[in-house]
Design a protein around this nucleic acid. Sequence first.
DNA 1: TTGAATGCAAAGCTTTTGCAATTCA
DNA 2: TGAATTGCAAAAGCTTTGCATTCAA
Lengths: 134, 134
Amino acid sequence: MKAITQLKNQGFRITLPRQEILNTLENYPLTVREISHTLKTKNILVDLTSVYRSLELFKQMGIVQEIDLGDGMKRYELIRQDKHHHHFVCNNCGTIKDISSKIEKKMMKDIQSKTKFLIQDHSLEMFGLCQKCN
Amino acid sequence: MKAITQLKNQGFRITLPRQEILNTLENYPLTVREISHTLKTKNILVDLTSVYRSLELFKQMGIVQEIDLGDGMKRYELIRQDKHHHHFVCNNCGTIKDISSKIEKKMMKDIQSKTKFLIQDHSLEMFGLCQKCN
DNA sequence: TTGAATGCAAAGCTTTTGCAATTCA
DNA sequence: TGAATTGCAAAAGCTTTGCATTCAA
């Protein structure tokens, strides 16, 4: 279901800030500042606070996902239909690429049966050099 | 090589704060506040700033490793000899357990050959319920 | 019209920086 | 002794909160 529809269906208002924030997230994960800056270049001024609040709402609605690359800022990306994936960050140019792996599920099952922990979620981030920078 | 020896060999001073900070890290990853608080219960008062600075030094010397569980605070743990591992965090009681997996290396190789990215490092954190809480 | 959403200012946290005082070697 | 290390105060950076104003429905 499209994010906007989802908002409407759940009784939330379709505001310009919300629509535009969602638009910025089309391509790759962004920080709050990056979202705000992107909007500024389109002459759409949205306060940082509102960006934070919108993202919090989107997160709770399952529209958006928070990712942490360990650099002190959270990043946000749209959740595409059940396409669980991870990220590769280039240490040189900073580009973020989506990564998905088939072995992953097996790995989680393995760990779960070995440890008897119930794994509800996990995050996997990779760092290195992208094809261009290598 | 023991951390203290390593410090001495590299010309750094063996101070009480440094020794005691290292001691707190024996068991599991701690935040800066947790380190400071642990020391306080032992009547050892070390300023937060000094904890930060010691950890930064230890990190650069390869004695300590920074981990990010996405809750806004960095955690620090001793690096044991080439025992690369990851973490499982219980969503209920907060316990952090070390996890290591054999499949992991294969997974990285797989991704590397598929994407042509050079993977230099990665982080994997798992969240769920531990045996006790499940 | 009216409650939801936004903007602005201020505060809350973690982490960093500057500098004088202290301390290890 | 003297440079390295620490502590204290202040600042920096990300995020949250309070409240009056604005706006979608």
